[in-house]
Design a protein around this nucleic acid. Structure first.
Length: 617
RNA sequence: GGGGGUGUAGCUCAACUGGUUAGAGCGCUGCCCUGUCACGGCAGAGGUUACGGGUUCGAGCCCCGCCACUCCCGCCA
């Protein structure tokens, strides 16, 4: 530590006000403020230091006429982000020197004494300049997360998160829900996401798993007569990460008994109303739209549509059924469909951009991407020569084609064609945004429910059916006879809540009859009775002893907060997030453990470790 | 597992087609400055161009490998 920075003075550590509190009315009072040195302006004869805490900042003045020489000298050497305590007198600022940018700008504190509570070395990146700090490499921000969190933007996010968590708890309490904690040391259930395993020291070769969600416990709680359960539950999934996916994340987990789907819709609409009011002081209109899965795919090509802009998909299967253009007619003959979308105003796309789009489409399974550019009253396209006048007329009528449009086609099996164009639609929207041709109001939130999902999907490689959602989802009652007859047609009582193209959450009414559950496991999913018994025996058993009809939902809490904070990365709303490879850069975890620990756990590591990467000091 | 992007001073970035001693702003250090608030002025320090190879008379730039971060596909019942 530098000599002279420790200045004698009373370290009472009791502030009289925080740094966003002083006003002209306090003039004349002696106050104690504590906080971080935000900025220092040394004019030679007088020194200004802005002191910052969580709440805001206050200008303090060091006048050499008022202070012993060594005290003043020490103050001139204070580094940004040192933690100090000052005692001084509040006074209104001289005329013309008020700062209207900050709430405390009418006053200043004339320092009489100060103490350095902690001397800060020069920081690895600035936290006081929002312009620069916003652009700092995220690697560095994560390594020095405690500095990053001092930025007002990050504090604001944490505050929003806290307020929403508390609002959620109070709303759920008002609705008669009990907050119940469930174990995070759970049983391995290999369906679905890959799990994190926890070795069991007491019985070599056995493992706990961290739960992907409290799904089974919350259903058991219903059997246990809790009737209304909720939890802000930490969940763990060992899958590859994205901007909106972390290996551990938080769900608002909900389950209730004696209800139907509509009860869940009402409950969640009420919760989201409360949350948006709390965080943004916005009144959300309810009820939200309900859109069947099939309609969502047909219109937007995705089961979580962003309905803030148009460019909906249009079906041309009938128009091209007997077209001379064999790519389209052939797809239809194979039981597929022809779909198109009008990317309004994108005719100016370069050959390169079209190429990029085609590659993008191919990257998720498209064979190609047919297009028409409408430029200078002309249709520029390699395929338009195959079209009849009737086909062209149909395109103009159904797509509303105008000068400057770009028409994109997909011809494939229904789901593929829809999904390809759905992704292209989002890609086009991004392009239009960067060109300034599409602007979305940040205050606009298009909520909707997607309903009537197919209960089952078919895995061609494994040659078997699997649950679209999870195996406890109840079929729509009238579709139960189809379970064994025509599984593809069975709709599940599953629902997703979607906002602005983000899947905020999902849930379902559950199966509460053990015989239906057994049919699903053994007849439809083709899990052997032994396997069923091993994995889910306790649930089937529980359902024999008086299981109420029940259902629930889970909302992605991190995603919700990210939307409220207007950020696309949930890392910005998690205090200590991990990188895309699941590493905590601050603590350098995961890390190796001692041979002793491994021995205790009966674990032998066989794979060779790659070299430890060099870490900056 | 696959594809794209990024990596140059403490931070944010520049450096043309491969060509002199790798620059700028901020920050840092020293000096000056009594009303600043992105204070101002002068001077200075600071670089293994992520890392390892290669091509070349010559590499921040080209090639191969590798590491990290990031976005996407697969994956996420």
């Amino acid at each position: 530590m530098r000599p002279g920075t420790l200045v004698p003075g009373p370290s009472v550590m009791k502030r009289t006000q925080h740094c966003n509190e002083l006003r002209p009315v306090h003039a004349g009072q002696t106050v104690t403020l504590v906080g971080w040195v935000h900025s220092r302006r040394d004019l030679g004869g007088v020194l200004f230091i802005d002191l910052r805490d969580r709440e805001g900042r206050t200008q303090t003045v060091f006048d050499p006429a008022d202070l012993p020489r060594d005290v003043f000298e020490a103050a001139t050497h204070l580094h940004a982000e040192s933690v100090i305590e000052v005692v001084g007198t509040v006074r209104t600022r001289p005329n013309g020197t008020e700062n209207t940018k900050i709430a405390t700008g009418q006053v200043e504190v004339l320092v009489k004494q100060f103490t350095v509570l902690n001397h800060a070395e020069v920081l690895p990146f600035p936290v006081d300049d929002p312009e620069v700090a916003n652009k700092v490499n995220e690697e560095l921000r994560l390594q020095y997360r405690y500095l990053d969190l001092r930025r007002p933007e990050m504090i604001r996010n944490l505050r929003t998160r806290s307020k929403v968590a508390i609002a959620t708890r109070s709303y759920m309490d008002e609705q008669g829900f009990l907050e119940v904690e469930t174990p995070t040391l759970f049983k391995s259930t290999p369906e679905g996401a890959r799990e994190f395993l926890v070795p069991n020291r007491r019985d070599p070769g056995t493992f706990y798993a961290l739960p992907q969600s409290p799904q089974q416990f919350k259903q058991i709680l219903m059997v246990g007569g809790v009737e209304r359960y909720f939890q802000l539950a930490r969940c763990y999934r060992d899958e590859d990460l994205r901007a909106d996916r972390q290996p551990e994340f938080t769900q608002v987990d909900i389950e209730m008994s004696f209800i139907e789907r509509e009860d869940i819709y009402n409950l969640i609409e009420g919760l989201l109303k409360r949350v948006w009011k709390t965080a943004l002081n916005m009144d959300l209109p309810t009820p939200f739209k309900r859109i069947p899965f099939v309609e969502a795919l047909n219109r937007w090509g995705i089961d979580k549509p962003d309905t803030r802009f148009g460019m909906e998909l249009v079906d041309f299967t009938e128009e091209f059924r007997s077209s001379t253009f064999k790519v389209f007619a052939g797809a239809v003959a194979n039981g597929g469909v022809v779909k198109a979308l009008n990317a309004k105003g994108l005719a100016g796309a370069t050959q390169g951009q079209i190429e990029t789009m085609t590659e993008y489409a191919k990257s998720f399974g498209a064979k190609g991407l047919a297009f028409i550019k409408v430029e200078n009253n002309e249709w520029k396209s390699p395929i338009v020569k195959f079209f009849t006048e009737a086909e062209k007329a149909a395109l103009i009528a159904k797509l509303g084609i105008e000068e400057g449009d770009l028409i994109l086609f997909a011809a494939d099996q229904w789901l593929n064609a829809c999904e390809i164009l759905g992704k292209i639609r989002l890609y086009c929207a991004e392009v239009l945004k960067t060109q300034g041709k599409l602007t979305l109001d940040p205050q606009r939130f298009d909520f909707l429910w997607v309903v009537d999902f197919p209960l089952l999907s078919y895995d061609k490689e494994m040659n078997r059916w699997y649950s679209s959602h999870h195996p406890f989802t109840a079929p729509v009652a009238e579709d139960i006879p189809l379970l064994t007859a025509d599984p593809k047609k069975v709709r599940g009582q599953h629902y997703d809540i979607v906002v602005n193209g983000v899947e905020l959450g999902g849930g379902s009414i559950r199966i509460h009859q053990p015989d239906v559950q057994k049919t699903i496991f053994e007849k439809v999913l083709a899990i052997t009775p032994e396997e069923t018994q091993l994995r889910f025996g306790y649930m089937l058993e529980a359902f024999k002893y008086g299981a109420p009809p029940h259902g629930g939902i889970a909302l992605g809490f991190d995603r919700m907060i990210a939307i409220l904070c207007n950020t696309t990365s949930i890392r910005d709303v998690i205090a200590f997030p991990k990188t895309a490879k699941g590493v905590d850069l601050m603590t350098s975890s995961p890390s190796t453990v001692s041979a002793r620990q491994l021995r205790d756990l009966h674990i032998e590591v066989k794979a060779a470790r790659k070299e430890e990467p060099p870490r900056p000091a």
